[in-house]
Design a protein around this nucleic acid. Structure first.
Lengths: 342, 342
DNA sequence: CTGAAAGCGCTAACAG
DNA sequence: CTGTTAGCGCTTTCAG
């Protein structure tokens, strides 16, 4: 009969060994004779024993939990990343403690404090910004932290992002090659490094051809604000192409263009997004975009985190992963453009 | 200077009180004189002390963590629910430990074992099925569990769902009122109670009017399979209306109808989905659907869970929350139908 | 290889 | 109200 909360002591009693013997059998790098292992395993099996992770964490100082702070799951890129992070860590024997945080830095700080209370072995901050005070605290608390999809000037912080500047530039080149000259940009939240980098690369790319941004409005990474930003941009002297700082907004931009302004995409306006979320491939949108390679970004994030946990490296790393432009049908395709469509 | 891992003992020393006094100051229902509180708070502040949740969990037997098992986050309904659950629990002082589980029951069992190792105070299983062996183990382990958006015959298990049978019936009535008689159904994964209940209600609703299902294929809650199911259903003798077991598939069905089969929605075919995920309201889809009131479902789930944790009630509850039909533009609107559009 | 013993940081009686 | 005293379940020296 399986009973409530079996302890190692009970297993020890039944197996006729000491409690520490039981511990050794369940501790990866420990020594125990085959017959001890045998007896203990059997007793544990019969009793339904499993080690208490919390007790283990207390004494060993390792909880095998990773705190993940994420601001909102509405943009499909994040659930996707969360799922991948969770799976990747699960594979390494870690588990993910999720914390939602409104994107105000006050809130973030409070949330990170709560995370620290759980003695997590590391913190991943996905698309949220840290106050410098906070990063200081994490360093003081000796707990590794890596930024995901957001970089910070603070050189002491590790971060994994895609190559946003390059990505922005690729979009500029693509649009220019398509013959566009009246080109607009719908920005994300200005506090985000991703927003800034994409815009920088984009504007630079245009400048290389002597072209200046034709229009610019701000959507703050929200669909409704992206809609408003679109209406504003097209109210007078509309551009013939728009680069939108992420897909989540770009989908709203396309809908607004088509259903509220009666414009055709791409015949009247070309639209390009960023991220390559699943919906981009849906026939209704067929959105040309820059892919953020979520798999590789997650893999790197997990790598960096595990290295930090094992103290293999203490120097902060900024990792940028290059992502391709995925050419679909929402933007005019330049003649002779190498077909990269999916 | 904030230092690493401050303990209550250190705070006690600095405040000139006993260690247990410090504990009391940080324990909600405890007694301490104003001056003690004052001294302790000050010392704690200066040292940057915060109680170790794990140590607290060990001795109190309450970890204030809730394990959430979720199968996949691709269907936007789940990220949404996860975010709401996380926020709701955070408000109550609990935190959510997320576990991804492939939807094979083997895997689920293993995952739940891992969750139990963390001494969570409760488990929420969102859209996954439990083996009866497993629910037995949870009961043995004394840890409360509630099923979210999935019910189980097992009478001992609490579950929160929407009123799926009623919802299915509503769709039938709506489609019939719209004059449809050749009505198809695209099913979800047949192992899911939501799938079965929606279909039951739908088929019953049709039967009440003497109408039989005109066609039926299976999409297993996956977009690509929904596409295939659509092609199959429309290959010969197509229906003029389709009810799809959830929105996630319904969006794929609409795209397939429009872009692969060249049919107009709703002129040639009416489409109705289930869930009312955010994308239903996007102009490209404008999908008529039955809303699952995520907020209320989550609120109930949290309620039930907290009651169980506090042992207020031990009897399992099956809660069904009624959701309205949200009439949009993807299905013919019957003349004189009360306008419930958003 | 194995058992005894000492805690990890904290809460919960228990006397004062 | 407050300090003292036991542990929570486990890992980890330390002798044997």
């Amino acid at each position: 009969m399986v009973q409530t909360k079996v302890t190692s002591a009970e297993v020890a009693a039944r197996a006729g060994v000491s409690q520490s013997a039981v511990s050794r059998v369940f501790t990866p790098g420990a020594s125990a004779s085959p017959k001890t292992v045998e007896k203990v395993r059997k007793a544990a099996q019969e009793l339904g024993y499993r080690p208490n992770v919390l007790a283990r964490a207390m004494v060993s100082g390792k909880s095998r939990m990773i705190g993940v702070v994420v601001a909102y799951l509405e943009n499909q890129f994040y659930p996707d990343v969360l799922e991948k992070l969770s799976n990747a860590f699960q594979e390494k024997g870690y588990h993910v403690l999720v914390f939602m945080a409104a994107n105000t830095s006050d809130n973030i700080d409070a949330v990170v404090d709560e995370i620290l209370d759980y003695q997590v072995d590391g913190i991943i901050a996905a698309s949220v910004s840290m106050s410098s005070d906070l990063s200081e605290r994490c360093r003081a608390a000796q707990i590794p932290m890596v930024l995901f999809n957001r970089s910070q000037d603070d050189a002491s912080m590790s971060a994994v992002t895609s190559a946003n500047v390059d990505g922005g530039r690729k979009v500029a080149e693509f649009l220019l090659a398509g013959g566009h000259r009246k080109i607009g940009y719908i920005a994300g939240w200005e506090g985000a490094s991703t927003q800034r980098d994409r815009e920088t690369g984009f504007v630079d790319g245009l400048a290389s051809a002597g072209v200046k941004l034709y229009a610019r409005t701000v959507g703050n990474f929200h669909m409704d604000q992206a809609r408003a930003a679109t209406l504003e941009m097209f109210a007078t002297d509309p551009p013939d192409a728009v680069f939108v700082a992420n897909d989540h907004m770009a989908l709203a931009v396309m809908d607004t263009l088509r259903f509220e302004l009666g414009l055709r995409v791409p015949e009247d306006v070309s639209v390009v997004g960023y991220d390559d979320v699943a919906m981009c491939a849906w026939p209704s949108y067929n959105l040309t975009t820059v892919r953020q390679p979520a798999n590789r970004m997650v893999a790197e994030t997990v790598n960096v985190m595990l290295s930090k946990i094992q103290n293999i490296e203490t120097i902060p790393r900024k990792i940028e992963i290059d992502g391709p432009l995925i050419v679909r049908g929402s933007a005019r395709i330049p003649k002779g453009w190498p077909d990269e469509g999916i």
